[in-house]
Write a protein that binds this DNA or RNA. Structure first.
Length: 428
RNA sequence: GGAGAGAUGGCAGAGUGGUCGAAUGCACCGGUCUUGAAAACCGGCAGGGGUUUAUAGCCCCUCUAGGGUUCAAAUCCCUAUCUCUCCGCCA
């Protein structure tokens, strides 16, 4: 969430900046609520203060052995009045908080203004799309051709948008994940983490999936009414970032760099009919996530680095890609700045998103109260959080199947993956 | 699943109805000493919020969370969550 003080004092500026990402802030309503809050809070605290004073004097009188009755009489209906004000204030604060939790992050000044993905700006490309002297097949035909992808069986077991992988394709998927983890832990300084795939509501509020995007998630149905519902993670960003929730770390511990290979689960509500063919948009897929917890002054530099770490994977796999900076209108809820990395898919003759790397600045940190002890004044201050895919394994598999296909229907195993495949050079 | 114990500041750990937001130790910050460091000594040090030009003062809230009793709750009662110990079960 945004800094409440900033929101209050710079309401007009905030509204303007939010408008660039298509979010309309109801300035009049905010002003009205804020005025109400101010007077109500002052009144409540004054009542509270007078009750505290009286209670204290009762205690002191009692200790001196004096008669309390006259003081007790002064209490009167103070308690009832206070309770009423408290309830009124609590309701108002709840309303204000729910609005605050639904306001997206402010775009960084450096982010290009735009309405949608068409206004994103390419910042670099790497590699040259390979030309094929035969008609290229899409990854689905390639995968099914070597008996490695089985959509029909997945539908039987579960439903659409799930996949069964078999044989060397399943192994290739596993190899990709292991390879990525190894790069990030051995060459980029990330600590590997094994994390829960089910998380509680506080975690989802912390990273910003809730309260607004609950329908994008899968939720468990508790066995009993009282039991808490847990949700399947849409990305390892949720458990990794929430590791820092409600903690204060020493400044010297920053930056904290963590990575995890996990399955990710997305309900893909509202995306019916899009990318229905193949592995591009599944309800379940593997992803290697990169998370950095950094000093506020370092976060923009960290975003460049983190994006570079993700790009390294594609370079190692010799997969052509381009990197774009998302415009204000295309960024996710909590992001201040985002780079998307798009890999070349020959069958679609276009680049498709394979990684999204974002600097959330203090947006998540404020929600989670993730802080560090600032050397300058020895006080706690909010950290900045970043995350990025390094990479989405399922989509990387798509890219490998398409870019490494041969005329005879076989797939060449990218050289860097061969150690993970028992030396295998070709599938099919 | 059964029985019991517990949850307090960055950490450890006192505190069982009334100047307790809370002893003490560690960590941390500042200083003295030292060529420098360590040790020793002195001082400071919970977090959030309101008001305010103010990181000055003043005020409010917070001892896992949510309810309750009371003029007054870290302290008493209820519920939830989590942790630990013992027994049972189990990959």
């Amino acid at each position: 969430m945004l800094d409440p003080k900033y929101l209050r004092n710079e309401l007009e500026v905030t509204a303007e900046r939010l408008a660039t990402r298509g979010f309309i802030l109801d300035v009049d309503n905010m002003t009205k609520l804020e005025e109400k809050r101010k007077s109500l809070q002052v009144e409540t605290e004054e009542l509270q203060a007078s009750r505290n004073a009286i209670s204290k004097s009762i205690g002191q009188a009692k200790q001196r052995g004096e008669d309390i009755a006259p003081i007790m009489a002064k209490v009167g209906d103070l308690g009832a009045k206070l309770d009423a004000k408290k309830a009124e204030l609590a309701a108002l604060l709840t309303e204000i908080n729910s609005i605050a939790m639904s306001i997206p992050n402010l775009p960084d000044e450096a982010v290009p203004t735009g309405a949608d993905e068409n206004d994103n700006v390419e910042v670099r490309t790497w590699g040259t799309p390979k030309t094929f002297d035969f008609e290229v097949k899409d990854h689905l035909d390639v995968g099914e051709g070597v008996n490695g992808l089985d959509f029909k069986t997945a539908v039987k077991i579960t439903g659409s948008r799930f996949i069964v992988m078999k044989g060397q394709v399943a192994r290739l998927n596993r190899a990709l994940g292991q390879f990525m983890l190894d790069i990030h832990t051995q060459e980029h300084g990330y600590t590997e983490a094994y994390v829960p795939l089910l998380v509680n509501e506080d975690s989802l509020l912390g990273t910003g999936q809730l309260p607004k995007f609950g329908e994008d998630l899968f939720h468990t149905k508790p066995a009993t009414e009282e039991a808490q519902s847990l949700s399947l993670i849409p990305t390892a960003e949720v458990p990794l970032t929430n590791m820092l929730r409600d903690t204060i770390v020493e400044e010297a511990e920053l930056p904290i760099k963590m990575t995890a290979l996990t399955a990710c689960f997305r309900s893909e509500a509202g995306s019916y009919g899009r990318d229905t063919r193949g592995l591009i948009r599944q309800h379940q897929f593997d992803k290697v996530e990169l998370v950095q917890i950094v000093h506020p002054e370092q976060s923009m530099q960290a975003l460049e680095e983190l994006t570079g770490h993700a790009e390294k994977v594609l370079q190692a796999l010799a997969l052509p890609y381009r990197t774009v900076v998302l415009c204000t209108g295309d960024m996710g809820f909590g992001a201040a700045k985002t780079f998307d990395i798009e890999v070349w898919l020959p069958a679609q003759n276009t680049y498709r998103e394979i990684s999204s790397c974002s600097n959330m600045k203090d947006f998540q940190a404020r929600r989670m109260q993730a802080r560090f002890r600032n050397k300058a004044d020895n006080k706690p201050a909010l950290v900045h959080t970043l995350n990025g895919s390094g990479l989405a394994v399922g989509r990387t598999l798509v890219a490998v199947l398409e870019n490494y296909q041969n005329a005879d229907g076989s797939i060449t195993v990218p050289p860097v993956l061969r150690p993970y495949m028992g030396g295998l050079e070709k599938i099919g």
